[in-house]
């Protein structure tokens, strides 16, 4: 019985230790399930096209939402000028939160830009090899999600002010 316990404990320790690298990496993105190497190049290129379109969609969404937020801010500004009335306590509190949101959005965008630039400049011209294409697909997929998240946060800017 004791022997079994010891073996079980050792196996448990070993499993936990082996899974440490996964934890350290924060479990890297496996959303696209891009581990299969049986895919044809044509299928991989198709995935790249989809993720590229997704990324461009995210980019457009960020720009659209930032523009709409800008319109809302300018409406408040115009109203403030027209009525010559100071902003209320609630409006100012809301603007503080909006500023934090905007600053955070800028930080995320800077990271997205840097990550994409770094990866694409690692190889001068992108190579039609599976590993590199998978890397690009994962990168585009991950960054598109971040862009959509940024766009979502911008929807709340200047809504309550």
């Amino acid at each position: 019985m004791k022997k079994r316990c010891i073996i079980f404990s050792l196996v448990f320790c070993l499993t936990m230790l082996l899974s440490l690298p996964l934890l350290a990496d924060g479990v890297t993105n496996t959303t696209s399930g891009l581990t299969a190497s049986t895919e044809t190049m044509s299928e991989i290129f198709e995935k790249l096209r989809i993720e590229r379109a997704n990324l461009v969609g995210g980019q457009t969404e960020v720009m659209t939402q930032a523009n709409e937020a800008k319109i809302r801010v300018e409406a408040i500004l115009n109203q403030s000028i027209a009525e010559n009335k100071a902003l209320t306590f609630e409006q100012l509190e809301s603007l503080k939160k909006d500023l934090a949101t905007i600053k955070s959005a800028q930080d995320i965008l800077n990271t997205v830009l840097t990550d994409i630039r770094t990866t694409t400049t690692e190889v001068g011209e992108y190579m039609p090899i599976k590993e590199y294409l998978y890397k690009l697909i994962n990168l585009y997929s991950e960054k598109a999600l971040q862009l959509y998240d940024v766009a979502d946060t911008l929807k709340d800017v200047a809504v309550n002010a």
Partner: peptide, 26 residues
């Protein structure tokens, strides 16, 4: 001051549009 704050927020949003526009996609 209110108006300056609002103008500045608008400019910060412009920066976001500019940053998003710099995205380099294949």
């Amino acid at each position: 001051e209110n108006q300056l704050v609002l103008q500045e927020i608008s400019m910060e949003l412009d920066k976001i549009i500019d940053l998003a526009g710099q995205l380099e996609v294949i």
